[in-house]
């Protein structure tokens, strides 16, 4: 059953974040800063940049190896969101037809360059976010957001979403199962059923929200979500962020591919 599989997929992302590797153990705050710096650096490249973006894949390669994340998992996630970005980028080759250079006598237009630039930027930023999420516990991420002064209400929303999405999905799964066991593969009522399912889930979650609120009140909730202070940043955390920032600076401003290319050309001559 399709729905069941999706449900266990959801849990898979969550389970990935409980592994015990060097990357998982780095403080969430540091990882968030690193990811944001990375994204800003990638997006700040000019719109025709393709080659200088390539070295940025090294971050993904390292974290996939060290963090023991299955690469197929990341590729699948990227495919899910890719249609949006393809639609944005697909028209560039048609509008911007000035030839930039010739590659083995094939003219390459600026449009094609910017098409690939957008595509690579997209893959880089989305995959780094997926890696961040699958190597960091959700409560750690929320704690990091709190430290960066993200409004309390958004953080709480996320916390509750994370906590109850599993409960809700399980409820939906049970309803789909109950329907499937009694529908004998009869088609045609699918849409009607899912409309009702959505309505039913909404009412159930409203009721649940009320019970949760009661549970919070009975434990002294007064409008502020309490949270535990975490331990201070350790030496490995600081070392990690230092290395990440230096690497980002190196790849962004010193253009290692260009200098390497020039170096190789000089060797050949």
């Amino acid at each position: 059953m399709n729905f069941d599989r999706e449900f266990f997929n959801l849990g898979y992302l969550d389970r990935l974040s409980y592994k015990d590797t060097i990357i998982h153990n780095i403080d969430a705050r540091v990882k968030v800063i690193g990811a944001i710096a990375y994204i800003i650096a990638v997006l700040s490249f000019p719109k025709y940049a393709v080659i200088p973006l390539i070295p940025f894949f090294s971050f993904q390669i390292f974290s996939i190896i060290i963090g023991e994340i299955p690469i197929s998992f990341i590729i699948k996630r990227i495919f899910v969101v890719s249609p949006f970005i393809l639609f944005i980028a697909i028209f560039n080759p048609f509008f911007d037809r000035n030839t930039a250079f010739y590659l083995f006598n094939i003219p390459i237009s600026y449009g094609i360059l910017s098409f690939f630039s957008i595509l690579i930027k997209f893959v880089l930023t989305v995959s780094i976010i997926i890696i961040l999420i699958s190597t960091t516990s959700f409560s750690g991420l929320c704690y990091a957001m709190r430290c960066f002064k993200v409004p309390e209400i958004f953080v709480n929303q996320l916390l509750f979403m994370y906590r109850y999405i599993f409960v809700l999905a399980e409820e939906a799964m049970r309803m789909v199962r109950a329907k499937e066991l009694r529908s004998f593969n009869k088609k045609g009522l699918e849409l009607k059923f899912y409309v009702k399912l959505a309505g039913n889930l909404l009412i159930r979650s409203l009721n649940r929200a009320e019970r949760i609120y009661y549970a919070m009140l009975s434990r002294g909730y007064n409008g502020n979500m309490p949270y535990n202070k975490r331990k201070k940043l350790g030496f490995p955390d600081l070392l990690f962020i230092l290395i990440i920032l230096i690497m980002i600076y190196f790849f962004r401003f010193l253009e290692p591919v260009n200098s390497m290319g020039r170096f190789i050309l000089r060797l050949i001559r």
């Binding site: 409560s139 906590r163 949270y227």
Partner: peptide, 16 residues
């Protein structure tokens, strides 16, 4: 309702 067992058990005492 909290993300980890520890935080959940700590919810009441912190509120106090």
């Amino acid at each position: 309702f909290m993300p980890t067992v520890y935080e959940d058990v700590a919810f009441g005492p912190i509120n106090m």
